[in-house]
Design a protein around this nucleic acid. Structure first.
Lengths: 335, 335
DNA sequence: GTGAAAGCGCTAACAT
DNA sequence: ATGTTAGCGCTTTCAC
């Protein structure tokens, strides 16, 4: 049972392959093919459920109708939510999505990008990069196909991106804590520390203190390795405990850290910190079903996917040329 | 700046395209091409970072090296974890993954399957189907390409699948509750109720009771619509509250329902149920950071992805022919 | 050991 | 208003 193809339709209908192809691609009017003929062709196509061979088409046109999405970890709900939104929007425009995870590994990211561009021939790329600078992309990719960076922003980068205002979000949440009278606020950051998201949140944390002329202790800033979050969070808390500092509140720079903090703080060993206020950049459903009143900022996650895919589609359609930088506002959630 | 192709290499090296193609595809020895020539060719390929045009290759060979993954919702961590595992394994074998969500919509699933098979030309399919019966697949798909069903199983279906032993898991968790002396156990199921996962768990719930000759009340079984989980869970709890039945424990047939239950039970209105034991099919990280000691069964999620992709790869490599049914054991988690 | 040439299924420039 | 034909870049049969 062979797949039906243009040739079959051509024989069956008595029209040339060209004509059928024209009608199929919506260029019937443009080429002045009679309404009647068009109707006959479309009818037959629908009846036998014909779809052109994608490889032949792509080979001929040079367009793949594939978009690549590269993220650090697609099993992370933050990214899978974005992925779903992107997939939905692209699907409506006949584009398909190819998703890969980098595991925060720069080499793997490079490999994936090259594979997508060079081998898969994607028409565009959306990516949450773990690169530190834009050199690789400027040299190897950006001249070939349109790229939209999401979530994380590369320093000194002139290209398209859609991100969250991490600095303001962090400053706002810490300001809220300081205004409520919390004084000794620890901050748990995460590697890779050079990421714009983390950097900006950290800066927001520091500048909120500066704004109130409150001197914060550098010892209350801990950096957690993303590959052993639970372990490092416990270590950080232990150090604070042993340093005999007072601790009012902890600001977790992402949800993974908040989960680890919440887990650790249940341990007998940290009972001194039982009343500590937790604040977290990113809001997750879990915060609604625990007794602790977590303060958080929620990110418009789906909106990132929406903006990124719509921008990419516009560029692909030739409707847009200039580089666009979209920065979305996060929202403080007080429980 | 044109992409490099076989023709360029041919001119540059003085060998025919044929020869280079043979070497590139590892058939150098088979065609008796001298070691020396092979080395020269491989060297040049590496130096200029040549990769064959995928569309031309697929058009010629009829193989796409794409695998389709169709799930109800890729933003659900259960499925995104499976997706990541599958992607990793396939990537090592030069296959790429195409992921789509059905939103539990049979029509959309049909559309997606047809698109993947007919338009994208995927070489194989892995899917968590929301179909009720296998007729569509048996008629339209299974004769074309290999398909692995995961998570959910279609009734009377002779094809490949990888699933969890939902019946035993549910029976075990409910048995544990009954043995601990819980007597009035409610069960919150979810639509679509015909899914094998839900069906089997419900049957496990019932048979555990039967085994202890305990008569359970049908009024304690509630079915929640997956599109308004929170609302329906609250309604179910209210009905139980008003019926003046005693309630010891609630068995949630999936994690979404458990989250909704935990949220509702915090409301003043349900304070009578404050001490109710929660049991859940599926174990999630949240259960570790809340005060309530949730009883759960954990599913070997990554293992589903691993088994499914490895089985598919074997079939594609022609190493396997017979249909295989893999049923993985869940594990009781007592807190 | 190596190369020439056909052809995978489609689109689009050019004819008519 | 419709048809002929070349060619996208690759693999593979067949010839040498």
């Amino acid at each position: 049972m062979r797949r039906i193809q243009l040739e079959d339709l051509s024989k069956q209908l008595g029209f040339s392959k060209t004509l059928i192809s024209m009608v199929l691609n919506g260029k019937g009017n443009h080429y002045g093919i009679s309404k009647k003929t068009q109707a006959i062709v479309l009818d037959a196509i629908a009846k036998v459920n014909y779809a052109p061979n994608k490889f032949a088409k792509s080979l001929r046109t040079g367009k793949s109708f594939f978009i690549g999405l590269i993220v650090p970890d697609i099993s992370n709900p933050f990214y899978s939510t974005i992925a779903k939104k992107i997939e939905n929007i692209l699907f409506e425009h006949n584009y398909n999505l190819l998703v890969c995870s980098t595991e925060e590994n720069i080499e793997k990211e490079k490999l994936l990008v090259e594979m997508m561009v060079n081998q898969q021939g994607v028409d565009g790329l959306i990516l949450a990069s773990c690169y530190q600078d834009a050199t690789f992309y400027e040299r190897a990719v950006l001249s070939h196909i349109p790229v939209i960076f999401i979530d994380r922003v590369l320093p000194n980068f002139g290209g398209n991106f859609v991100s969250i205002d991490n600095y303001s979000g962090a400053k706002e949440i810490v300001t809220h804590l300081l205004e409520k009278g919390f004084k000794n606020i620890a901050c748990f950051a995460i590697t890779p520390i050079y990421l714009s998201t983390i950097n900006d949140r950290l800066l927001g944390f520091k500048n909120a203190h500066k704004h109130f002329s409150i001197i914060m202790s550098e010892n209350l800033i801990k950096v957690v390795n993303f590959e052993k979050i639970m372990e490092d969070v416990e270590k950080g808390l232990t150090e604070i405990l042993e340093s005999d500092k007072n601790l009012d509140a902890v600001f977790a720079l992402n949800n993974h850290i908040a989960i680890a903090l919440l887990t650790c703080l249940r341990k007998e060993k940290f009972r001194k910190f039982a009343q500590v206020q937790i604040a977290c950049f990113d809001d997750i459903a879990t915060f609604d079903i625990i007794d602790k009143k977590v303060l958080s900022v929620s990110q418009p996650i789906e909106e990132i996917g929406k903006q990124a895919s719509e921008l990419l589609l516009e560029i692909l359609a030739g409707k847009k040329n200039a580089k666009e930088n979209i920065v979305l506002p996060p929202k403080l959630i007080v429980r």
